[in-house]
Design a binder for these strands. Structure first.
Length: 267
DNA sequence: ATGCCTCGCATCGCGAGA
C-alpha cells in the first residue's frame, strides 16, 4: 500500500499537475494540503475520473486538506483538530482507509516569529500532541502525515544558519515536533534514510530547486503498527521539476501487507 | 537587512506562503 502526502499549493491551478502525478505514481492513498479553494470548488469529478474517491475540507483562499483513495471507501473519523472551537482554519482531516487510520494535516507556518501567528502555531502543535496521544497506541496502523511546517534538524535544511530565526526552524517548533515523536511516532523518511539529504520544499525564487536549496517539512509519522509494515519511504522529485508546479513535492511510503489474522503464534 | 516567486481574489495591490 502506497501512501503519499502532497502540498499542492492550490488545487485549482495545480489540477493538471496533480492528475499527471496521480497517473504516474499511482499512490493508493494521498493526503493533500493547501487546497486554497472553497468547499464547493473541489474538482471532485476530475479526481473521480482519475480513479480516486475523496473527502476534503476546503476554505476560501487559504489552507484546505483532503484525503484521496483508490483502494476503497474513505471512512471519515474527524475533520478539524479538537481543542479550540474558535479555530476556523481547515487544517486537519482524518479517516480510516483500507485498515489504516490516516491523519492528514497542514500545520500552521507560524511566521513571522515572534508574534500571534507563531503563538497559533505552537498552540496548534499542543492540540495536535493531545489528539495524537489518543491515536498512537492503537493496535491498527496509524499514519499522521502532511505539511508539518517544521524542519526537524540541521540535516533537513540547506543552510541551517539562515533559518535559525524562522518559525519553521525555531527551537520551540523543533522541540514541539520532537515531543510528538517522543509519543512513539517514527519519522518514516529518517528511519529508512538516516544520513541522506532529503528535501520536500524549494522556494520558487533564485532557482532553489536547481541548486537543491531546499528544506524537509513534509513528514509521514508512523505508529508502531504502521512502522512494522514500513517497506519504503522516499520523495518523488519529478513533479517539482514540472512547469507551473507546487513549491512542494510529494513524499510517500510503501507499507507491506497486513499480517494474516487468526494465525496462531508459535512459541 | 531585504527581496526574490507565485497564487487567489473582498483583483489591477495585497496578504500569505516558507
Amino acid at each position: 500500500m502506497k501512501i503519499a502526502t502532497y502540498n499542492v499549493n492550490g488545487i485549482t491551478g495545480r489540477l493538471p499537475i496533480l492528475l499527471k502525478w496521480l497517473n504516474l505514481a499511482k499512490p493508493d492513498i494521498v493526503c493533500l494540503q493547501e487546497l486554497k479553494a472553497p468547499q464547493a470548488s473541489f474538482p471532485e469529478q476530475a479526481i473521480n475520473e482519475a480513479g480516486y474517491d475523496a473527502i476534503w475540507h476546503g476554505q476560501s483562499r487559504w489552507n484546505g486538506v483532503a484525503i484521496l483513495s483508490r483502494i476503497g471507501e474513505i471512512h471519515e473519523t474527524r475533520r478539524g483538530l479538537p481543542g479550540d472551537p474558535d479555530d476556523e482554519q481547515s487544517r486537519y482531516i482524518e479517516a480510516a482507509v483500507g485498515g489504516v487510520l490516516i491523519a492528514g494535516l497542514y500545520l500552521p507556518n507560524g511566521n513571522p516569529r515572534p508574534g500571534p501567528k507563531f503563538d497559533y502555531k505552537l498552540a496548534w502543535m499542543e492540540r495536535l500532541h493531545a489528539h495524537l496521544a489518543t491515536l498512537v497506541d492503537l493496535k491498527a496502523p496509524v499514519v499522521a502525515i502532511g505539511d508539518f511546517n517544521v524542519i526537524p534538524a540541521d540535516e533537513d535544511v540547506y543552510k541551517p544558519e539562515r533559518w535559525k530565526d524562522d518559525a519553521l526552524f525555531a527551537p520551540e517548533a523543533r522541540a514541539a515536533f520532537q515531543k510528538l515523536l517522543d509519543q512513539g511516532w517514527t519519522d518514516a523518511i529518517r528511519h529508512l534514510h538516516p544520513d541522506e539529504t532529503i528535501y520536500s520544499f524549494w522556494h520558487y525564487w533564485r532557482k532553489s530547486f536547481e541548486r537543491n536549496a531546499g528544506i524537509r517539512i513534509d513528514h509521514l509519522l508512523l505508529n508502531q503498527a504502521a512502522e512494522k509494515r514500513l517497506k519504503t519511504a522516499d520523495v518523488d522529485l519529478r513533479p517539482r521539476g514540472w512547469e507551473k508546479t507546487s513549491d512542494h513535492t510529494p513524499v510517500w511510503i510503501e507499507l507491506g501487507d497486513a499480517p494474516v489474522k487468526g494465525k496462531r503464534k508459535t512459541r
